[in-house]
C-alpha cells in the first residue's frame, strides 16, 4: 500500500496534556510518508470516533499518559463497534504512552492491534503499520 494514501489519526484521549510523545510520533509518521491527522489534546472518545469516521482513517493511534487507559480505550473500542467499525478489519487501533504490560495485554485482547511503550523504535511502529494496514478490508478489496 502506498504510504501517502494511508491516513492515520493521532489522538490524545483523556485529561493529560503531555502531547510531546504524540507530536513526535505524528511527525515521524509524516516523515515516513503517511498522511497524519492530529487532533490535539483532551479529546473525548466520542470526538475521536467521529473524527475516525469523517476522516476515513485507516489507523487510529491513541496516546495516553494519564493512567485512564483502561477506561478510555475500551470506551473508544466500544464506540467504534457501535459505528460498525471493526478493529483490525476496518481500522487498525494502536496505542502508546504509559501502559503497564498487564493492561497492554488486556487491551490487545480487546482489539487494540498493538501497544507501543516508551522507547519503542519508530521503525518498529512504521513496520507494524505497513504490515497490518495491508490486511484491512478496504485495501484487500
Amino acid at each position: 500500500m502506498e504510504r501517502s494514501k494511508v491516513r492515520i489519526l493521532i489522538a490524545k484521549p483523556g485529561l493529560d496534556g503531555h502531547d510531546r510523545g504524540a507530536k513526535v510520533i505524528a511527525r515521524a509518521l509524516r516523515d515516513a510518508g503517511f498522511e497524519v491527522i492530529y487532533t490535539g489534546i483532551r479529546q473525548t472518545p466520542e470526538q475521536i470516533v467521529e473524527s475516525v469516521i469523517q476522516e476515513d482513517v485507516d489507523v487510529l493511534g491513541l496516546s495516553i499518559l494519564s493512567g485512564a487507559h483502561m477506561v478510555l480505550i475500551p470506551k473508544i473500542l466500544k464506540l467504534l463497534e457501535e459505528k460498525d467499525l471493526k478493529p483490525n478489519e476496518d481500522v487498525l487501533v494502536i496505542a502508546g504512552g504509559i501502559i503497564p504490560p498487564d493492561d497492554a495485554q488486556a487491551l490487545e485482547n480487546m482489539g487494540v492491534a498493538k501497544v507501543f511503550g516508551p522507547g519503542s523504535p519508530i521503525e518498529e511502529i512504521i513496520g507494524f503499520i505497513d504490515e497490518n494496514v495491508a490486511k484491512l478490508k478496504k485495501f484487500r478489496a
Partner: peptide, 30 residues
C-alpha cells in the same frame, strides 16, 4: 501541505474545530 520530499503530511487544522466534530450537522474533512 504534503511534503514534496517524503509525500507525507501532517494535517492539523482540525485541532481548532474539534468541538464541532460530534455535532451531527457538521462534517469536517482534512
Amino acid at each position: 501541505p504534503t511534503s514534496p520530499f517524503t509525500g507525507g503530511a501532517l494535517l492539523g487544522d482540525r485541532i481548532r474545530m474539534q468541538r464541532h466534530s460530534t455535532d451531527p450537522g457538521v462534517f469536517i474533512r482534512s
